[in-house]
C-alpha cells in the first residue's frame, strides 16, 4: 500500500509544484517565502478539517456537518467571550474542542446505534446545527468590537515566524500521522473501511470505530470554529457556508477513496494545499472566481479518474499472475 500511495502522493506533489511554477513564471512574488507562509496560513482551517474528514471517509462514512459544526461552535465561543470576556484562551480552546466533539458524537451515535447512512445523518445534523445558530443568536452578528482582544489575537499571534493558526495545523498533521501509523485506533479505521466484514471477525467493532472517526472530525471542526471566528473577528449564521464540500474535495483530490479503506495524512494535507494554492493564486493572475471553481471541480474529477485508472491496472496484474499460474 505504502509504495502505491507514495507514488500517488508524489504525483500530487508534482501537480502542486507545477502549479506554483506556472504562477511564479508570471508573478514571481507569489512564491516568496512570506507569501507562501500566508497561503499556508490561509489554508490551515481546510487542512485541519480535511484531516478529520479523512478518517471519516476512510471508515466508509462522510461528514457533511463539519462546516455547520464549525459555525455553531464559533458562535457559542464568541457568545461566551462576549458574556465573560476574561475567560482564558486555554479554557476557550477546551470548550471549542469538547463542543465539536459532542456534535461529532451525535453523528457517530446515530450512525452506530441506529444504523442510519452517514450521508443522511450528517445532512440532517448539518441543517440542525445551522438552525441552532440562528436560534441562539437570533440571527444577529457578533462583531469585532464585541470580542475581547486576547480572543481575537490568539490565532494571529506569531510564534517562530509563523502564526499560531499555522502551528495548530502543523501540530494536527503530526498528531494524525502518529494516530494513523502508530495506534490501534488508526489501524482500525483502515480495517473497518477496507473490509468491514473481516474487521468484525478480527474483534474490531465497526460501529464504534466509525463513531470515533466522527468524534475526531467533530473535535477538529470545533477547534477550527474558534480559530475561524477569532481570525475573521466575526460570527454569524452563515460563516463557512458550503465549506464542507471544499473539505470533501480536498480529501478526494488527496487520493482518499470515497469507497473507504484507502487514504493518508499526506494525501489530505496535499489535497487541501492544492485547493488553497488555486484559491490564492488565481486572483493574483487575474483569473475570475468562476475559473477557480472550474479548476477545483476539474481537479476532483481528474483525481477520481486517476484513482479509478490505477485500481484497474491493479486488476490486470492479478489476472496476469493467474494466467502464469495455469
Amino acid at each position: 500500500m505504502t509504495g502505491f500511495l507514495k507514488s500517488r502522493e508524489a504525483i500530487l506533489a508534482g501537480a502542486i509544484l507545477a502549479l506554483l511554477i506556472g504562477v511564479a513564471s508570471r508573478f514571481p512574488a507569489f512564491v516568496a517565502p512570506a507569501n507562501l507562509a500566508n497561503v499556508f496560513n490561509d489554508t490551515a482551517p481546510l487542512i485541519i478539517l480535511a484531516l478529520g474528514q479523512m478518517v471519516v471517509i476512510v471508515t466508509r462514512c462522510i461528514d457533511l456537518s463539519v462546516a455547520a459544526n464549525l459555525a455553531l461552535t464559533g458562535m457559542i465561543v464568541a457568545m461566551i467571550n462576549t458574556a465573560v470576556p476574561g475567560l482564558p484562551i486555554p479554557l476557550i480552546l477546551a470548550i471549542a474542542l469538547s463542543l465539536g466533539a459532542m456534535m461529532g458524537l451525535v453523528n457517530g451515535l446515530l450512525v452506530w446505534k441506529l444504523d442510519i447512512p452517514p450521508i443522511v445523518v450528517t445532512l440532517g445534523t448539518m441543517t440542525i446545527y445551522r438552525g441552532i445558530i440562528f436560534v441562539i443568536s437570533g440571527g444577529e452578528w457578533i462583531n469585532a468590537h464585541e470580542m475581547s482582544d486576547s480572543f481575537k489575537a490568539f490565532p494571529r499571534a506569531s510564534f517562530l515566524g509563523l502564526p499560531v493558526l499555522s502551528w495548530i495545523a502543523i501540530v494536527c498533521v503530526v498528531a494524525f500521522l502518529l494516530l494513523i501509523s502508530r495506534t490501534p485506533l488508526g489501524r482500525a479505521f483502515f480495517a473497518v473501511g477496507g473490509n468491514p466484514h473481516a474487521a468484525v471477525y478480527t474483534g474490531i467493532d465497526v460501529g464504534s470505530t466509525q463513531c470515533a472517526a466522527f468524534v475526531l472530525s467533530g473535535m477538529l471542526a470545533g477547534l477550527t470554529g474558534y480559530l475561524w471566528v477569532a481570525r475573521y473577528a466575526v460570527a454569524y449564521v452563515d460563516i463557512a457556508g458550503g465549506f464542507e464540500l471544499e473539505v470533501v474535495a480536498a480529501c478526494v483530490i488527496g487520493g482518499i477513496s470515497i469507497a473507504g479503506g484507502v487514504g493518508s495524512v499526506g494525501g489530505a494535507l496535499m489535497g487541501a494545499l492544492f485547493l488553497g494554492i488555486v484559491k490564492n493564486a488565481l486572483p493574483v493572475i487575474n483569473i475570475s472566481p468562476f475559473w477557480q471553481l472550474a479548476i477545483s471541480g476539474s481537479a476532483i474529477i481528474i483525481a477520481v479518474a486517476f484513482n479509478a485508472a490505477s485500481s484497474r491496472t491493479k486488476g490486470r496484474v492479478i489476472l496476469k499472475k493467474a494466467e502464469h499460474a495455469i
Binding site: 500500500m1 505504502t2 477496507g194 473490509n195 466484514h197 473481516a198 468484525v200 479503506g261
Partner: peptide, 10 residues
C-alpha cells in the same frame, strides 16, 4: 475475500 483479508493493508 469478504470476511478474511483486509485489502489496502499490507
Amino acid at each position: 475475500g469478504k470476511q478474511g483479508a483486509i485489502k489496502g493493508l499490507p
